[in-house]
Design a protein around this nucleic acid. Structure first.
Length: 509
RNA sequence: GCGCCGCUAGCUCAAUUGGCAGAGCAAGUGACUCUUAAUCACUAGGUUGAAGGUUCGAUUCCUUCGCGGCGCACCA
């Protein structure tokens, strides 16, 4: 980039001011600034008995509104916890400072020292006796204008384009305090989960993100290359197999909160990189995982909202325990009138007739896919309130332990809320011979062209051969939980920098 | 990957049947010593996402492409 490019007149005007500020002998980009109060603290420190002689404060922030009236000016300065009005008068400021004030723009960062008073219109305000420029904003933020009304704040204009909001998240955040709030809540939710698990003796661990073999889920991986070892490495699609190795190693309760990577489509509930909680507990089964996740999520909801009820969209969700529980078989029987354990595949296909699928699509369904379609059609959408769907057919759950009393089922549940899967849990398979057989089956499917089948992990089977105690395992999609608890319609609204197509002319310059 | 919708000034949005591309905010100049969507006057700001086509004439109609949104498919 050179200085000869044609700059937009708005930016050029600001660069001219930047030069004028330097000509005044003022450095427009400061090194540090010592403030005494945040905006909120400053306002709280004013007491009306003090009249015009309020306490001195030093605040810092970004100029979010600027109203000049010639020899005076009002501005609002926003910081991390709010904003405060400042009052600038030519006759109370040094001549150079007043010249600087004339060169300030919206979105500049400034520090202000002065004493508090209440204006005639009733707003607690800092009467500035000095102003320090902390950083000049050379581009204005796409900021709307706010009007304070009885009902709250109305914003006129602003940043609305979704693509720009996600691409320039810094501008989105700078301009939308409600977007910042979503990410504060996200942090609180994750912190609540950590607290819950730490309090119960679960050990937080970190396992490899770069893996020589991927496994633990059915998904296409991202592949990269290690130069020194000259070998491919995969970005993990799940933590599962490493965490269970730790159970073999003698840790009885472990969890990891981290990113998984799946090389698949993107939509409202899928980002290629997403945050997963995985948790494993020795001597436990899927029933223990069920009460654990129920307790954990309801406690997080309580901490976040002060209650157990949450309005999401136009539905009220009740997180008070206990949550509904339905078996996979009974749920489909109730919703679709068909018993998956006894009906023929032909009869099951017939059930799906007229449910939005074309006849050829229905004809192609068989085995696991057919069962999954029945689940998606007759059971999942009806699970609006928190619902455990338990005991999945074996065909759908190659990683779960066979049900102790129904050999055609597995000990697995999914937690469904608002028709969306939030968590998935098993009684973990700990028979190494069974595990070996299932890997072999995966290899066969891979050879048959299923590129999502898992590779054979010899080392993992070796770990199981040393003996893994009975273990309950749980995976919970953190992003989806945050979406739900913060009432956000898209996973992109709860991921700070969601995956996007590269922007033309930026990525390659 | 498929379908539908959208893309106009820095931002938010208009533009009648295909007939001079407009407003508010932001910006610049000027006025203004308690304003708060400050106000008032003036000024500037456009390759209408890109390329092509139809037409005397295209923001508008057609084709292709790019980006985004929604839905479907794939996928937890």
């Amino acid at each position: 980039m050179t200085e000869s490019i044609d700059r937009h007149y708005v930016e050029q005007a600001r660069r001219d001011k930047l030069a004028a500020i330097r000509a005044l002998g003022i450095e427009p980009f400061a090194y540090r600034f010592e403030r005494t109060h945040t905006s909120r603290e400053a306002i709280a420190s004013y007491d009306d008995s003090l009249g015009e002689a309020g306490p001195p404060v030093t605040i810092a922030g970004r100029i979010v509104a600027l109203r000049s009236q010639g020899k005076t000016a009002f501005a609002h300065v926003a910081d991390g916890d709010g904003k405060v009005q400042i009052y600038l008068r030519r006759d109370t400021l040094a001549a150079t400072v007043w010249e600087l004030v004339q060169l300030l723009d919206l979105d500049d960062h400034i520090g202000v020292h002065g004493s508090l008073f209440r204006t005639r219109t009733g707003e607690v305000t800092v009467r500035a006796d000095s102003v320090t420029l902390l950083a000049k904003a050379l581009c204005p933020l796409p900021r709307g204008k706010e009007q304070q009304t009885e009902e709250g704040v109305t914003v006129f204009g602003g940043l609305a384009d979704a693509a720009t909001r996600y691409r320039q998240r810094y501008a989105d955040l700078a301009v939308h305090s409600d977007v910042r709030d979503v990410f504060r809540q996200r942090a609180a939710i994750i912190q609540g989960i950590r607290q819950f698990l730490d309090d119960r003796g679960y050990l937080e661990v970190e396992t490899p993100i770069l893996q020589p073999l991927y496994g633990g889920a059915m998904a296409r991986p991202f592949v990269t290359h290690h130069n020194a070892l000259d070998m491919p490495l995969y970005l993990r699609i799940a933590d599962e197999l490493y965490l269970k190795r730790l159970i073999v190693g003698g840790f009885e309760r472990v969890y990891e909160i981290g990113h998984d990577f799946r090389n698949e489509g993107m939509d409202r509930s899928h980002n290629p990189e997403f945050t997963m909680l995985e948790l494993y507990q020795a001597y436990a089964d899927y029933d223990d995982m069920r009460s654990l996740v129920e307790e954990m999520v309801s406690e997080v909801v309580l901490r976040l909202t002060g209650g157990y009820t949450l309005v999401v969209g136009n539905v009220s969700i009740d997180f008070a325990r206990p949550w509904a529980r339905v078996t996979f078989r009974e749920g489909i029987l109730a919703g679709g009138g068909i018993d998956i354990l006894h009906a023929s595949e032909a009869a099951m296909r017939e059930c799906l007739d007229g449910k939005g699928l074309s006849p050829t699509e229905i004809e192609d369904l068989q085995g696991a896919r057919l069962l999954d379609q029945l689940f998606k059609t007759f059971l999942e959408p009806g699970c609006v309130q928190p619902t455990f769907v338990v005991d999945y057919p074996k065909a759908l759950s190659p990683l779960a332990k066979v049900h102790r009393t129904h050999p055609e089922l597995t000990e697995r549940f999914e937690l469904i809320i608002l028709g969306t899967e939030l968590a998935n849990a098993f009684s973990e398979l700990n028979d190494p011979d069974d595990q070996r057989a299932r890997f072999e089956e995966q290899v066969r499917q891979r050879a048959a062209g299923d590129d999502e089948a898992q590779p054979f992990d010899v080392d993992y089977v070796r770990a199981l051969e040393y003996g893994m105690p009975p273990t309950g395992g749980l995976g919970l999609g953190i992003d989806r939980l945050v979406m739900l608890l913060t009432n956000q319609p898209s996973i992109r609204d709860v991921i700070l920098f969601p995956a996007l197509r590269p922007e033309e002319g930026v990525a390659d310059s």
